[in-house]
Design a binder for these strands. Sequence first.
DNA 1: CGCTCAGTTGACGTATCTCAATCTAAGTGG
DNA 2: CCACTTAGATTGAGATACGTCAACTGAGCG
Lengths: 242, 242
Amino acid sequence: MTLRPTQACDQCTLRQLCLPMGLPDTELWQLDEIVQQRRPIEKGSTLFSMGSPFEYLYAVRTGTMKTVLMGDDGTEQITGFALAGELLGLDAIHQGSHPVTAIALESTSVCAVPWSLVEDLSGRLPTFRQHLMGVMSRGLASEENLHALLGQRSAEQRLATFLLSLSQRHHARGLAADRFILPMSRADIANHLGLTQETISRLFTQMRRQGLIELHTRDLYIPDLDALRTTAGVSTSAASSA
Amino acid sequence: MTLRPTQACDQCTLRQLCLPMGLPDTELWQLDEIVQQRRPIEKGSTLFSMGSPFEYLYAVRTGTMKTVLMGDDGTEQITGFALAGELLGLDAIHQGSHPVTAIALESTSVCAVPWSLVEDLSGRLPTFRQHLMGVMSRGLASEENLHALLGQRSAEQRLATFLLSLSQRHHARGLAADRFILPMSRADIANHLGLTQETISRLFTQMRRQGLIELHTRDLYIPDLDALRTTAGVSTSAASSA
DNA sequence: CGCTCAGTTGACGTATCTCAATCTAAGTGG
DNA sequence: CCACTTAGATTGAGATACGTCAACTGAGCG
């Protein structure tokens, strides 16, 4: 047993995906020193709320979060899902407060990085800065893909694309691309894709009948990824998180 | 007549909106020295194409551009419109090539800033870096709003919100909020909002009959902005560009 | 073992799309 | 300066994908 906290960045399996990507070992300790390991956020509870001041960037360690934009009229839009290794809060830099609420879909642990530290490291370490800007740039490109998905695609194509996006992101984490658990409800998927719960449910049974997927509750298996890609409309580059 | 090019950043009316915002005068010349003023891009021609290498960040000086994401199957999605002072190319940093094609809606002039210069200035000037990250962050937040617009709102609400967004952006440039020219076609508006040309046309005549707008060809007048906000669904913070 | 909430399925309604026919504005060449 | 052309815009009639409302079912949990 070592005295080093098991959550240390240099031990983290997500290091290649997460904020410290590209940081030299000699600088990594600066993150380790200051990054706060919060106790897990319970399913359904919020990490930060829309309108709250922006102080930390968060990296998901384990679990899954959703980000929700609440409308004045009570409508809610799920703008994205954050898997392990993905960052939350980059959309808050501009106005200094979070434009969305972050809610845990399951028990989820995060690393909290003070924004002031990120700014400091950005000024001193070009590699770190480039990585950070790359992440933001990728976020912009992803949302453009999502825009095209919502604007041009049928319900079936949206759902297939969404499943492929999850598959791809799991694969990027070294997990199986064809078998994983959906951490979110049908209603969450529907909301995110601009559809209704009922439509998602109908599509799932239709896809089951076509042999495109096997799905028990939230346990998903995709026997033929290429077949799913075909129904998605050949969009290989699926949209990712926000 | 001065020998200084009239396009110099320190003379530019967009300085407070554009990339050099917050740059000290003592540093401004570094942009001026290197920024290329391109000859105007004619209506309908492209500034850069999807897939082309990312070398420059572009700032719109005059005119309007649209950014289009082309699908493998021939579908096109207009992801945003860039007005004077807005930046193009931030979504290309990550993958090193442009994910969208930029097309001029009218004769448009841009400033081309080498990305290497931007990176250099980002490393040396904290204020500049903060501004740049702020712009990207705002882009992320804007696209989240757009997501909610496409996912939750009716055709009428989408169009009203879109007009208010244009109005607001004109106002931010010191122009009239209630009277401006639509630089894009009905088909472009429709595509951007996930609707059809016919629906937009029908909504325009409906809004005309309700007295919400006056519109001759592309000449728009909004007699009562608050009324339009009401039909938009009280979303004061309208979505902006991409 | 029954409560509760997520998920499924059905019947029906409708906002928006599709197809197609004008109509209008802005050029363009004679 | 006026026919002619052409692309954009408007309008109508009919089709449909998806939503709404509502009942039912199954899974997890105390």
